[in-house]
């Protein structure tokens, strides 16, 4: 008959340990995030980064035949942009060479 109290105790204790473990981990991550954010904010304004928007090409290279023109990528890697364009074309059911993407921007 002792088995039931033991099982209840194990279940409650186990759930508690998982909670405490993850809450402590949350606290560690919060502290880590705060430190990172603070360091970012403390960075000297003098070394302000270049504009986020992709720079305009200085001397535009000739475009490939059939190209619909340049696409502006804002904080998006080439690989992610290619993935997004492929997914959009797939969802629309339209060949990718019949679509024109003007810009892809990460929403913050």
């Amino acid at each position: 008959m002792k088995i039931f109290p033991d099982a209840i105790l194990t279940a409650v204790l186990g759930y508690g340990v998982v909670f405490v473990g993850l809450v402590l981990l949350m606290a560690v991550i919060v502290v880590m995030g705060k430190v990172m954010t603070a360091r970012k904010a403390a960075a000297p304004a003098a070394t302000a980064p270049a504009p986020a928007a992709s720079p305009a090409p200085a001397a535009a290279a000739p475009e490939a035949p059939g190209s619909a023109g340049k696409i502006a990528l804002h904080n998006v890697s080439d690989r992610d942009a290619a993935l997004i364009m492929a997914i959009v074309a797939d969802k629309l059911g339209v060949p990718i060479n019949q679509l024109r993407f003007k810009s892809i921007k990460e929403v913050k």
Partner: peptide, 26 residues
């Protein structure tokens, strides 16, 4: 990392682990 409070939800969703454990013993 962006929303650490998600950890609480990840912990809460282990409820079934321990209740099913008790159910199996019972």
């Amino acid at each position: 990392i962006a929303r650490p409070s998600s950890m609480i939800l990840g912990a809460a969703a282990q409820l079934g682990v321990f209740l099913a454990f008790f159910g199996a013993i019972a």
